[in-house]
Design a protein around this nucleic acid. Structure first.
Length: 287
DNA sequence: ATGGCGTTCTCCGAACGA
């Protein structure tokens, strides 16, 4: 894991000289891992994360392009169903105790690939893709709320044990400051009180919201619609979150929204959140 | 956000996303 501190992206050039145990982890909704593969591989090489939570991979587990990712030194655990959803974990600091889904996870109506957990470098990671909800009067909205409630129940025993990161696309903007114009979203999904209450209930278990630092503007948006130049006008939403137990949150040195990954040709509509932490996990967990 | 774009499969239109 020491190598994690050697090659860092330009936005983190000011690396401390102190030699402490560091881990860099990230979450990114890639909106199809197959369509995004060249960009994902390039990003892994430049950002050099130790652990990555991916969402919306949109491939069955056996169709995940694992070989190319493994060639960069990562182990891969994927949970997919084909065309929709799909989550994965990439790690170069160990990948053990992989679990797809979580106990009591609802479906719509059948199971969907929206959560995958594993232990990486002594830290438990859960990559989540929360249901979108579509509109508040859609059955998918009730599904979203029940899914979040079930996630809370499933995590209740894990959070007190610490060393846990739940990261991904939550499809909820925690506050009105987390959308570019609250008036546009009035009455829409992603901002309703029940969705926000479900997030609060998760945090009330003892999870902290590790907010990424925006690299442009004053708000740490993580998603911008592809249409109408929304990204260039910075009309975005903060719907991708990193929730961490206090021991992890206290170890965080820096967290940024890597908006560079949203630029250029063929981007995802989401940007990664990249988190640096020190003093976490165990050195021996590296291989 | 009345749409605008992008990905996927049933593939040249529809479903979904947020």
């Amino acid at each position: 894991m020491f190598c994690a501190a050697r090659r860092r992206a330009s936005w983190h050039a000011a690396a401390p000289i102190v030699q402490s145990w560091r881990m860099r982890f990230a979450t990114w909704n890639v909106n199809s891992v197959k369509a995004r593969l060249p960009r994902l591989l390039g990003w892994l090489e430049s950002a050099q994360p130790d652990v990555v939570c991916l969402q919306e991979t949109k491939v069955a587990a056996d169709a995940f392009p694992a070989e190319q990712v493994e060639a960069l030194g990562y182990r891969v655990a994927a949970h997919g169903q084909g065309r929709w959803n799909g989550v994965a974990l990439l790690s170069r600091v160990g990948l053990t105790q992989v679990r797809r889904g979580f106990p009591g996870e609802p479906g719509f109506p059948g199971p969907e690939a929206r959560a995958i957990g594993a232990t990486c470098g002594g830290v438990r990671f859960l990559s989540v893709y929360v249901p979108n909800g579509r509109t508040p009067d859609d059955p998918h909205y009730a599904y979203k709320l029940s899914w979040l409630a079930a996630l809370r129940t499933a995590l209740a025993d894990d959070v007190p044990r610490g060393a846990l990161v739940v990261a991904g696309d939550f499809n909820v903007a925690p506050t009105d400051d987390d959308v570019w114009d609250p008036a546009v979203f009035a009455g829409a999904t992603h901002v309703t009180p029940p969705e926000r209450d479900a997030l609060t209930a998760l945090r009330d278990l003892g999870l902290r919201d590790v907010v990424g630092r925006p690299l442009k503007g004053d708000r740490p948006f993580t998603y911008w619609d592809y249409r109408a130049g929304m990204f260039h006008q910075n009309k975005g939403m903060r719907i991708d979150l990193v929730l961490a137990t206090p021991d992890v949150a206290d170890a965080v040195d820096d967290a940024v929204v890597d908006r560079e990954a949203r630029k250029g040709s063929g981007p995802s509509d989401h940007a990664p959140i990249v988190v640096d932490a020190s003093g976490l996990g165990t050195p021996s967990a590296g291989s």
